[in-house]
Computed example of a mutant assay.
Amino acid sequence: MQASRTASRTPSRVATRVATRVVAATAVAGVAVLALSAPAFAHVSVQPEGAAAKGGYAVVDFKVPNERDDAATTKLEVNLPADHPLASVMPQPVPGWSVKVTRSKLAKPLTMHGEKIDEAVTKVTWTADGKGIEPGYFQKFPLSLGALPEDTDKLVFKALQTYSDKEVVRWIEVQQEGQEEPENPAPVLELSAATDDHHGAADDASDKTEGKTDGKTDGKADATTGKTAAAADTKGGSDTTARVLGVVGIVIGVAGVAYGVLAGRRRTA
């Protein structure tokens, strides 16, 4: 009788130990997945609205997330690539932000539409008129760029993000081929193959850009701070969904193994 009771308790104890190990393993796996994926959406990045073809024009968005819990982003400085100067750079007004375009003399003049250009935009600075980008939000800063160079596959922009507590995060590290992503990578714009109709791209970019701002004028937009929830970003939402499904898959897989082990032990008992 006593032996029978002991035998009946053994599978229960085994099941408890297995369940405990499953929970621990699942927690570790979940934390690992989130830890590895978290930095992916904390960087200042740049993406084109449509195509960014070599030799053409494009509207690009600099996406700036707030990665602090106790401070707002109040300033963004984007330095344009000096090795591939752009003759035309026009910012789109952003509600709640003032913009300043800085021009500099070129060591080697550019030729655009038959005209020689001896200066180009080297930096664009956005400064918040109000609270800026608060914790848990991001903001997009659009620029119309052109003509894009034809002798490179990408453009590297170095950005400085300033917080309300005066902290400055320098997104200036260039990704080296074959190496891991740096801690503070610079935004990189990938260029697609050249198209036959460069003027069509330029017209499209101009249509998407609201207003023109020269290098000596600060364009002040509406004082309302543009707050956009990070969950509204389609790409970010897709990445988050993929990570959640991955963690759920791990949990289901481990639970299935534990159930099989438990069932086998019960049959043996």
Rank of each mutant, 00 (worst) to 15 (best):
K123Q: 15
H43N: 13
A38P: 00
A25F: 01
L245E: 10
L145S: 05
Q2T: 13
H113F: 13
K235W: 11
Q176D: 13
R170P: 01
S37L: 03
D70M: 03
A147R: 06
K220G: 02
V89N: 04
T224E: 12
K166L: 05
V60S: 04
K158M: 08
A186S: 07
T228R: 15
S12M: 09
P85A: 11
F141V: 02
T217R: 14
G136V: 09
T225Y: 00
A147L: 08
T152P: 07
V46I: 07
E119A: 15
D197Q: 06
M1N: 10
S88F: 11
R17V: 05
F138W: 12
K212S: 13
R17P: 00
G211N: 06
A27M: 09
G132E: 06
G249W: 08
H84I: 02
P93Q: 06
G260A: 15
P93R: 10
T195W: 04
A202M: 12
A229S: 12
D151H: 09
R170F: 01
A263L: 12
T20W: 01
P91N: 10
V156E: 07
A82Q: 11
G30A: 08
V23P: 01
T224L: 03
E49G: 04
L36C: 00
A194S: 11
T20D: 15
P48N: 05
G226I: 11
A255E: 14
K116H: 08
R243C: 01
K208T: 02
V99S: 09
M90C: 01
A147Q: 10
K220M: 03
V248P: 02
G132R: 04
V174T: 15
T6L: 12
R266P: 04
Y259R: 11
A242E: 10
K140H: 05
R170E: 15
R17E: 13
